[in-house]
Simulated assay, not measured.
Amino acid sequence: MTDRLTTSRVTTARGDAVTYDLRGEGPGLVFVAGAGPFRAIDPITTETAERVSRQGVTTVVHDRLGRGDSPADGVLDLERELAALAAVIAVADRGTGRGAVLCGHSSGCTIALAAARVGLPVTGLVLWEAPLGDDAAATKEWIDEFERRLDAEDYVGATEQYMKDMPPEWLEGMRRSPDFAELARGSRSQRADGESLVRASAALEDGTLASVGVPVLATYGTSTFPEMPLSARKIVDAVPHGEVREVAGAFHSWEPVAMADVLARFVRDAVGR
């Protein structure tokens, strides 16, 4: 099978332009990044997409709105992000009508869950370390303050708020960059992450996550934070067709060789269903 790369751009129903990398032939797989990454700074996802595409899968890795080569103005909320996701699912589908599997990373997991819940053509979900350890009330309080700072154009403050419960060395690493102020502007693209985290947390508590009828594989790394296996189990317990699996990985990132094999097998099984 081929992993030949095509880089192109698709326009969403909302008029946003989304740049993506397309590889391979076969059933579709779309990677949904979490709160920070985009193609140019995410070699792990790129390598994984390359490896999966060699196993008979069409892979799409895109820059989310407001990141990398997908610049966007205005309020980048979850509805715009879902429109972008719908557009790249259509790219991965290649006109077959089969839709695509979504692979979410971190808060990208909750965007992927939102896509399935609103009826986008999703055939399955692979979720890597969904950060759903807090209850819905605490999650909403955290995001409300993040959005307050974002709306005030306090991008540094918004970044600090979004990252306040993450390992402190992550934020300190950003601060050491001479481009920190510009990096902090990337918080504009995290509104969709916040909204999807609030929705997913509430759906876990009120039982409505059961509306996700597609197969769900909730994964976490062999070396990870204690809440990640717990979050994976919470998701699987809430959906009709779920499985939990540990996959080689550390520091909130998967190991590309191991994850590629898991993804290729999951996509083939989804097509078989």
Rank of each mutant, 00 (worst) to 15 (best):
125 L>N: 03
129 E>N: 04
129 E>K: 00
129 E>A: 02
130 A>V: 04
136 A>K: 11
139 T>C: 08
139 T>Y: 06
141 E>T: 09
141 E>G: 07
141 E>D: 10
141 E>W: 05
142 W>C: 02
142 W>V: 06
143 I>N: 15
144 D>M: 14
145 E>T: 15
145 E>P: 13
146 F>V: 14
148 R>Y: 13
149 R>H: 15
152 A>F: 15
153 E>I: 02
153 E>S: 08
154 D>T: 12
155 Y>S: 01
156 V>R: 07
156 V>A: 08
158 A>T: 08
158 A>H: 06
159 T>Q: 06
161 Q>V: 15
161 Q>E: 15
161 Q>C: 14
162 Y>I: 07
163 M>T: 14
165 D>S: 11
166 M>H: 07
166 M>E: 10
167 P>L: 05
169 E>G: 06
170 W>Q: 13
170 W>F: 14
172 E>C: 13
172 E>K: 14
173 G>H: 11
174 M>K: 14
174 M>F: 13
176 R>L: 07
177 S>H: 12
179 D>R: 15
179 D>G: 15
181 A>E: 13
181 A>W: 09
182 E>G: 15
183 L>K: 10
184 A>Q: 02
184 A>T: 03
186 G>L: 10
186 G>C: 12
187 S>M: 05
188 R>F: 12
189 S>W: 12
190 Q>G: 10
192 A>R: 06
193 D>V: 13
195 E>I: 11
195 E>Y: 09
198 V>S: 10
199 R>I: 06
200 A>N: 04
200 A>G: 08
200 A>W: 03
202 A>S: 08
203 A>T: 04
205 E>H: 09
205 E>V: 11
205 E>F: 12
206 D>M: 05
206 D>F: 07
206 D>P: 07
207 G>S: 11
208 T>W: 06
208 T>I: 05
209 L>Q: 04
212 V>D: 01
212 V>C: 05
213 G>A: 06
213 G>P: 03
214 V>M: 01
214 V>G: 00
215 P>F: 05
216 V>W: 02
218 A>W: 05
221 G>R: 02
222 T>Y: 11
223 S>C: 08
223 S>Y: 09
223 S>R: 08
224 T>S: 05
224 T>P: 04
225 F>E: 02
230 L>E: 04
230 L>D: 01
230 L>R: 03
231 S>P: 00
231 S>Y: 00
232 A>P: 00
232 A>K: 00
232 A>M: 00
233 R>N: 02
233 R>Y: 01
234 K>G: 01
234 K>I: 00
234 K>T: 01
235 I>V: 07
236 V>K: 08
238 A>K: 01
239 V>F: 00
239 V>W: 00
241 H>G: 03
241 H>I: 03
242 G>M: 03
246 E>R: 06
246 E>S: 09
246 E>N: 07
248 A>F: 10
251 F>L: 14
251 F>G: 11
251 F>P: 10
252 H>T: 07
253 S>A: 10
253 S>E: 09
254 W>R: 08
254 W>F: 09
255 E>H: 13
256 P>N: 09
258 A>E: 13
259 M>W: 05
259 M>V: 07
260 A>T: 10
261 D>C: 13
262 V>E: 05
262 V>R: 05
262 V>M: 07
